[in-house]
Each structure stands twice: as C-alpha cells, then as structure tokens.
Design a protein around this nucleic acid. Structure first.
Length: 267
DNA sequence: TAGGCCATCTGGTCCT
DNA sequence: AGGACCAGATGGCCTA
C-alpha cells in the first residue's frame, strides 16, 4: 500500500524511512489503495482500546462530544501510526537480515564476483546454491568411490587418515601418523562432516602441492602431527605423487557446468 | 516500453 | 500480547 512511501525510497531503505513516511503519509490519500483505508479490524480494535484508555486517563468530562471525538481520533491515529511504524521497521530489518544472508550465500557461490559483475538475483542464487550442493555431494561420493577403488579397502584410513599407514607402506614409516587428508578433509570418515570450504576454490587443482590448502588468512598450514602438509609444497606421499585418475576430470567438468549455469542465470 | 527484480508496506497467521 | 514469518500489492529502477 502506501504508494508515496514506497515511491520515496523503494531502494534506499534508509533509517529515515519512517519519518518520511510520517511526513508524507497524509498528503496523497488519493494514491493510497484500499489497504490503508481499511485500517483493519485488528487495528480498529487497538485504536478503540487505546483511545478509551487515554480518555479515561484524562478524564475530561467537561469536553464536548466533538472535542472528545477529536482527541480520540487524533490520539488513535498517532498510536496506529506508531504501531505501524514499529511493525514496518521490524519487517524492514527482517528483510535486510535476509538479504545479508543472501549476500553471504552469493559470496561462496562459484561465479565471478566483483564490482563490474551484476550480482545474482535471489532466485538465481538459491537455484545455483542447490545445484552447487548437489554437485559437491556427488563429487564427494565420486572421490570416496575412487579412493576405494584405487586402494581396494586395505588403505582404509587413507594415506593421511587417523589410523596411520600400514607397516608395509613404502613412503611413510609406521610412526608417521596423519590426521586428516588436506583435500578430502575428514570426509573419508563416515560421520565427520567434510570441510567443504577448504576444497571449494578449485577441485581441478587437486594435484599440485595441495594448493587447496591455501586459505586467505593462513599461509603454510601444517596438517596433522606426523608428516606435515604445507600449503604450496608438494606432498611426498604416494597418493599425491600419483597422476590424477581420469575420473577426476569429471569433477572439473561438473564445476564448469555449475559455473556455466551461473552465467546463464546472470543473463 | 515491457518485463524482471527489488524494497517496502500491510494484514493475516502462528508461535512463544 | 508481542514478535516472527509469510504472501500479496505496489511502485521504482534497470535492462533488453
């Protein structure tokens, strides 16, 4: 409703909105739709209650009916306005919080960010996020499957797992115990949630020196308490030395598809 | 200029 | 009772 208030600052969302609303509110009644006129039965009830309270407080019996009505109407209008402004402010804040959350979601989505890039619409953000989650889930499953295939189950703790390498492992001596694989994180263990954020920046970059370990604020990141993985440095263990399985290209293509979808959504 | 997207207002409903 | 949540309505801005 209230065409003038929205016309004044449909995008501004300024803190002065309510004040502007108050000032301009009564000037263009011809523009208001019927929602304003039909102040609603609830509000009329509130109005009735409030005005009766105020009148009983003032107890002005010498006032005529006209002035009584005038006071009653004036006060109730103000009360309604105050109530309305309060509710509107809450709703604005709620929507702003929602938009902040939406921005946070956009930040982690795989599409180009920047001042020159138009940001994803809300619906596009949600759709892309869904697809992205699905893609990551399937990628994770695929990687689990590949690891299982490659090591046939006897390397159950993976080369950096908490169990450590078997005694026969040619690379790591028995005392070198790794806690978490830097790329797969704890995703190989059944119950621990994977640290997806660490692997988001580029699944296709899997091989060279655990570059995925690089996080904006953490330079060389030692992993585990045995052999240490360092961001940017090659890992000497067998898995990291091996050429990437051909299936990994599927992960890259998945990512490419997601990014392509993002571009489509931004059109 | 039409259509998409958005911010805001509003009333209703549900929950605490 | 008050707040949160939701959906509908409205109008502004922007782009193809």
């Amino acid at each position: 409703m209230n065409s003038d208030s929205s016309s004044m600052s449909s995008r501004a969302s300024s803190p002065d909105m309510d004040e502007m609303y108050l000032r301009g509110h009564h000037h263009h009644h011809h523009l208001h739709d019927n929602r304003m006129n039909s102040v609603s039965s609830t509000q009329n009830d509130i109005l009735q209650k409030m005005s009766e309270e105020v009148l009983s407080r003032h107890g002005s019996k010498e006032d005529g009916d006209a002035s009584k009505y005038k006071i009653k109407k004036q006060l109730s209008d103000q009360d309604i306005q105050q109530l309305r402004l309060k509710i509107n402010g809450r709703e604005r804040k709620r929507m702003h919080d929602l938009n902040l959350a939406m921005d946070g979601l956009r930040e982690v989505m795989p599409y180009a960010h920047g001042p020159s890039v138009r940001k994803l619409s809300k619906i596009a953000t949600l759709l892309l996020a869904r697809n992205y989650i699905l893609m990551l889930t399937s990628s994770l499953e695929e990687m689990k499957r590949l690891v299982g295939e490659i090591y046939g189950g006897h390397h159950s703790a993976f080369h950096c797992g908490t169990v450590g390498h078997p005694a026969t492992h040619p690379v790591h001596p028995p005392h070198t115990v790794h806690q978490v694989h830097p790329i797969l994180g704890s995703s190989l263990s059944a119950n621990a949630p994977p640290s997806l954020s660490a692997s988001l920046p580029g699944i296709g970059n899997l091989r060279p020196g655990h570059s995925l370990l690089k996080t904006p604020s953490t330079p060389p990141l030692p992993i585990g308490n045995g052999f240490q993985h360092w961001a940017g440095l090659p890992c000497p263990c067998t898995i990291c030395q091996m050429p990437p399985p051909p299936q990994l290209s599927a992960l890259t293509s998945n990512m490419s598809r997601i990014v392509a979808e993002a571009k489509d959504l931004m059109k």
